[in-house]
Structures are given as C-alpha cells and as structure tokens.
C-alpha cells in the first residue's frame, strides 16, 4: 500500500463524513420550501381566491383529514385502496420479473412477447378501466387488474434490459475461471440486473397509485378515489384535498421507502 493509496482511502472516507454534515442542511432547505409553499397556499385561499367552492386552505384540509380519521372513514378508504394496490402490485412484480427473465433467456420468447409488451406499455391502459369495471364489477378486482396492467410493463422491460446489458467484461472475467453458464447467470447476470429490476419496481409505484385512484373514480364503493369523487360531487373542497394529500403522502412514503431499500440492496449504484 503506497502513501498515495492511503491518501485516496482517507479522502473517500472524508467525503462521506462531509455528506453527513451537509445532510441536515439539505433537509432544512426542503422543509423550508414545503412550509413556504403551504404558507403561500394558505394566504392565497384566504385572501386571493377566498371561495370555499374552488380552493381549500391547508388549515382546512388538515382539519378535514383529522375529522375523517376520527370518524374512521379515512381508514376505510385507505385500506381498500391499499389492498387494491398491494394485490395488483405484488402480482405485477412477480409476473413482470418472470416474463423479463423468460425474454432475456430465450430469443423466441422475446420475439413472441416483445410486440405485446411494447404496444401495451405505450398504450394508456388506464383508459381501459371502465371496460375492466364492466367485466369485473365495481369491487376491488377491476382496480387490481388496472394496477397489474400499469405496473407489469415497466418491471418486465427493466428486468429484461438488466439481464441483457450485463457487462461483457464481468462475464469474461468469470469465464476465465472456467465458469458454467449457470454460474455466470447467478454470480454476474442476476446481481447486476437487480438495480434495473428495482428501478422498474420503483417506476411501478407511481403508476400503480394512479391506476388505483383513477379506476376508483370510474366506479367504486370505497377507496381514496371514491372519497375524492364524492367530495367533488358535493363541492366539499377540504375532503377532496384531504384525499389528494393522503395519496401524495402515500406516494412519497412508498418511494422514499423504496429508496432506502435500494440503498441497502444495491449500494454500489449510488456513487
């Protein structure tokens, strides 16, 4: 170990330390931005728009969220939406990874599936939600199907791309030790595809949430989409915004949780 190399290691450690010091300040900037935005919104809805039929102030929205939570209505809507999302997302993730593997491993499978995957990914399948409701009714299964359609394709495409773009140099390194195709798959291709698969799953979170809510708007008995639709019909702006805010919070929380998971599972992609 030369002095230069020791210095490089120390410098790398130092920059990580710097990141820890800088982190709270970055957080602070984000928090100030959100608080400032909320303040502007509050002022605008009190003094500029000042019409409860068009805009609700943040204070009214949080009061509405508290009231909905207290009555138990919020939990009911949230749990229905969460179940629809979770079932659809789990099925789509599993199926997407399996189809992605099949396409990466077999040229025939890829030829057979590629036009459907590309076509359906490009189609705004959310527009099919009324059709699914017609087929499956206004219960949870029509929403589950919408979520599957929206989440499946990014997961499939990313899984396939991840397996296909494995570094040739890494494969060759393993081959130089006399590795079998099976060893190459498990020791190189699969681990190097994990960041891609996770990126696909992350993309699926936002798409899946949109799917749940829009499908509920088209027809449902409960769910956050239902809450938003019935509040809109009654011109109840605080309740409407309450539904939107809860949804946004769920989206942010899920994405952030996923980011944390990525940091744990694939830290090498973060530098």
């Amino acid at each position: 170990m030369s002095g230069v190399e020791r210095w490089a290691v120390q410098r790398a450690a130092g920059s990580r330390l710097g990141w820890r010091i800088g982190f709270p300040r970055l957080y602070l900037a984000g928090a100030l931005s959100v608080l400032g935005g909320l303040l502007l919104w509050e002022l605008a809805s009190r003094f500029v728009v000042a019409n409860a039929l068009f805009l609700a102030a943040p204070s009214q929205i949080f009061a509405a969220i508290a009231a909905l939570a207290k009555s138990g209505e919020l939990w009911q809507h949230m749990s229905i939406s969460a179940i629809e999302f979770a079932i659809g997302y789990a099925i789509a993730s599993l199926l997407g990874v399996i189809i992605g593997f099949a396409m990466a491993e077999s040229a025939v499978m890829k030829r057979v599936l590629q036009p459907w995957i590309s076509g359906l990914y490009a189609t705004p399948t959310i527009a099919l939600a009324p059709l699914f409701i017609l087929w499956l009714g206004i219960g949870i299964w029509s929403k589950v199907l919408v979520v599957i359609f929206l989440v499946l394709f990014p997961v499939t495409i990313n899984t396939e791309a991840g397996l296909r773009t494995t570094s040739e140099r890494l494969i060759e390194m393993l081959r130089s030790f006399g590795a079998t195709p099976r060893q190459i798959f498990f020791k190189v291709s699969l681990p190097s595809a994990v960041p891609f698969i996770l990126a696909g799953l992350k993309l699926g979170i936002g798409r899946g949430l949109i799917g749940v809510v829009v499908a509920e708007l088209f027809g449902s008995r409960a769910g956050l989409g239902r809450l938003i639709a019935q509040s809109a019909d009654a011109f109840n702006m605080p309740d409407l915004f309450a539904g939107v805010i809860v949804l946004a919070a769920a989206g942010i929380a899920l994405t952030a949780g996923f980011g944390w998971l990525e940091n744990r599972l694939v830290p090498w992609t973060k530098d």
Binding site: R169, P191, W268
Partner: peptide, 13 residues
C-alpha cells in the same frame, strides 16, 4: 491459468 485483466473487472456488489 489465472488471468489478470486490463480493467479490474471486480464485481461491485
């Protein structure tokens, strides 16, 4: 035979 590559080809994970 042991091969030392031009690029290190280390597995990042």
């Amino acid at each position: 035979r042991g091969f030392v590559f031009q690029t290190d080809n280390l597995l990042p994970w």
